[in-house]
Nucleic acid binder design. Structure first.
Lengths: 231, 231
DNA sequence: CGAATAGTGTCTATAAGACACTATATA
DNA sequence: TATATAGTGTCTTATAGACACTATTCG
């Protein structure tokens, strides 16, 4: 067995490296994007990777807090949907040794990511498939994309991708983009979204074009709402 | 910042305690039960708690491996459904210090748990609500129960609670127990279960009673199958 | 007024739930 | 033959998807 190490708390086992990594999704230029940043420290200096870092036992109350701190420090991000995704682990995934990473999923409007230097918005499919990401970040991005897509089928999670206010048709386009479907019927979509009560009209406001203006809406609740069936 | 500690791998941060805990569900005496064992070491010696333990960086390939090792050593369990649940963390949850626990959900027939001394099968509702479990194991059990119930609505996860072979009516009763519903229509249930193809008849075998005997079935696949809609 | 999109209402095809009906065992 | 459960088939009802129709703007 491993000799006593670490913190002197009394346990006899060598502790694994503990980090958090966040898959931040947003919508930019009409495409789904994941936020990567250029690493400043070893290993993989200079590579694009997920925003992440060590758990700070003296600064973080828990893993959620660590994820929020990482988003604040590395992406200047203070608002958005955040949920735990899964924990990735193993002796192989980090050259520094046995490590585990609590992966989080964040979904934010692109405006929340302005002012973050060093941050690159890339296609999640090219970054997990084509591009080689360090560690197992390719697998983490893939897991994040899976979660985003599967939850989008039965919840209002995609509303966090857009800035308020938005029109029902714009929101429909976001669902189509995320789910990869062609022509979601706007009438049925409107019923679903309004019935679930996650969205409310912004009083009196409209938007212009060469046709009838559309009512603008915003999220009513800070949380994700769930449909009875599917979208 | 924290001075250098731990493993000498070069990182500058004190590492949190890393453990795994497994919520093992089974069916015993017609009731849903969670497997707890009496702790042999500090803290909370003598208390009933979830089977769990430190991650062994020299023995475990990853967290899944750690969970399987814990199940083997503490519950003599070598077969069943196992999936990662969530990772619980914080400075408060363990008196030894800042810790994180990768929680797993296991679903097994009760026969797999025989021969495990020291193991107690208790009601998950009484154990998370009434009874006080050490650490945050009450919350972990509640999360496990949530996952089991929510997945049972749209998957064949409950088939792992029963020993093969079983009848469709027996399986229906298991779904009713887990979901807490009254009278699931047997005809509709049969269609759903057989259509999804997760279960196959055991050739020629029947079962007796004061009435028409029932066909026996077993799981065809080692994995959980998912329905189009709900059960 | 034509074109384009917003928004509402309705019709229909489908599927789930209820349940009728048949099958097969024991007592 | 009565009864109890297994298993199949059908009818009804709820609903999602398609789409018709109205509304409202600009050029």
């Amino acid at each position: 067995m491993t000799p006593p190490r670490g913190t002197g708390a009394g346990d006899r086992f060598e502790r694994p490296i503990a980090t958090v990594d966040v898959v931040v999704f947003t919508l930019d230029g009409g495409e789904l994007r994941v936020a990567l940043y250029e690493r400043r420290s070893e290993p993989f200096v200079g590579s694009l990777a997920l925003p992440g870092g060590y758990v700070h036992v003296d600064a973080d109350a828990d893993l959620d807090g660590a994820a929020r701190r990482v988003l604040r420090d590395k992406a200047d991000l203070r608002w958005g949907h955040l949920e735990q995704l899964a924990t990735f682990s193993g002796v192989e995934r980090d050259p520094r040794g046995w490590s585990l990473s609590a992966a989080y999923l964040a979904v934010v409007p692109v405006a929340e990511l302005v002012g973050a230097p060093n941050l690159h918005l890339v296609s999640p499919t090219s970054s997990s498939a084509g591009r080689r990401l360090p560690f197992d970040h390719g697998a983490i991005v893939a897991a994040g994309l899976d979660r985003l897509r599967s939850k989008s089928v039965y919840s209002t999670l995609p509303t966090f991708l857009v800035e308020s206010p938005f029109t029902i048709a714009e929101l429909r386009d976001v669902y189509q983009l995320v789910l990869g479907v062609d022509r979601l019927d706007l009438a049925g979509f409107r019923k679903k979204i309004l019935d679930v009560g996650a969205v409310e009209p912004v009083a009196g406001e409209l938007r212009t074009g060469a046709h009838r203006p559309a009512q603008l809406y915003r999220r009513t609740i800070g949380d994700v709402a769930v449909f009875d069936r599917t979208i």
